[in-house]
């Protein structure tokens, strides 16, 4: 599954640490992520998953540690040294971020087509017909009725909004996508369909994904590797099947057994 990856990691994280005053948000997190690889970050509420994701997405400043990202030109850059303009360009072209709360990830009063087209226009697309065509294409790819292109997300169900977020993010063909609990709060059947869709797009587009979830079945279905967090630290990491079938840490064993019991 992982044998086709280029040599250099896409993302290299070392000793990443964030304090909230005295309290640890996350501490000493290190890992490499390769192109096309899906990493699940799991752990119970308060374990530091969202903090880690915000640090990686440069939305939060680290207290210590470093994040290096291999840009499209092949050169790895320390993200802390990017200019604001470079950082924002990265965010809206080479990266995506699918939020748990769709109102944070969409423009709720802009049509579905406008939501998908925004990134294209941000990087200079100036042909209405082409933008609309691309939006229609993406609506199809995320299984939203193309007839809804001019509707605003307020009129969409929870599952449709998440699919619209995905389309809005993937339209610029990012290489790295962050997802924070993208399926939680949805009905089980809606969740299953969304997971299928994500899985299909990830493999089709060769996306690298860091997905935060408290749901081990989501991690099982989507990820190549898992990092288990507790108290802000990574306590176990490895290939998904290994971690879930043969957990080494007692805490991971507990997590796995509770999902099996459920």
């Amino acid at each position: 599954m992982l044998n086709d990856l280029p040599d250099a990691p896409l993302l290299s994280v070392r000793d990443l640490t964030r304090y909230y005053g005295e309290r640890i948000g996350c501490a000493d997190v290190s890992f490499d992520l390769y192109e096309g690889e899906v990493l699940a970050v799991v752990g119970e509420s308060g374990s530091g998953k969202s903090t880690l994701l915000s640090l990686l997405a440069t939305e939060l400043e680290a207290s210590a540690g470093s994040i290096r990202y291999r840009m499209r030109d092949g050169i790895a850059r320390d993200l802390a040294t990017l200019t604001e303009a470079e950082r924002r360009l990265l965010l809206r072209t080479d990266w995506g971020f699918v939020r748990q709360d769709s109102t944070q990830g969409l423009r709720m009063s802009v049509s579905a087509g406008g939501n998908i087209g925004e990134r294209l226009m941000a990087v200079g697309a100036r042909h209405y017909g082409n933008i609309r065509g691309t939006s229609l294409d993406w609506l199809g790819r995320v299984e939203i009725d193309r007839g809804r292109i001019d509707d605003i997300p307020k009129a969409f169900s929870g599952g449709m909004r998440q699919r619209l977020q995905i389309a809005r993010n993937l339209v610029t063909h990012p290489r790295l996508v962050f997802m924070d609990e993208p399926t939680s709060g949805l009905d089980v059947s809606v969740q299953a369909r969304l997971l299928d869709l994500i899985r299909g797009l990830v493999s089709e587009l060769g996306l690298a994904v860091i997905i935060v979830t408290h749901d081990l079945s989501v991690a099982r279905l989507l990820s190549h590797r898992i990092m288990v967090m507790k108290g802000g630290r990574v306590i176990e990491a490895g290939l998904t099947d290994r971690v879930l079938d043969d957990p080494h840490q007692p805490y991971t064993q507990l997590l796995v057994s509770s999902v099996l019991a459920a």
């Binding site: 423009r107 802009v110 087509g113 087209g117 209405y128 001019d150």
Partner: peptide, 22 residues
């Protein structure tokens, strides 16, 4: 202010896009 400073003006075209769509 940040959008002006960085000449990030995609939003203006989103507004025009919405106009045409509507």
């Amino acid at each position: 202010r940040k959008l002006h400073a960085l000449a990030e003006y995609g939003l203006m075209h989103v507004k025009l896009y919405e106009d045409i769509a509507r």
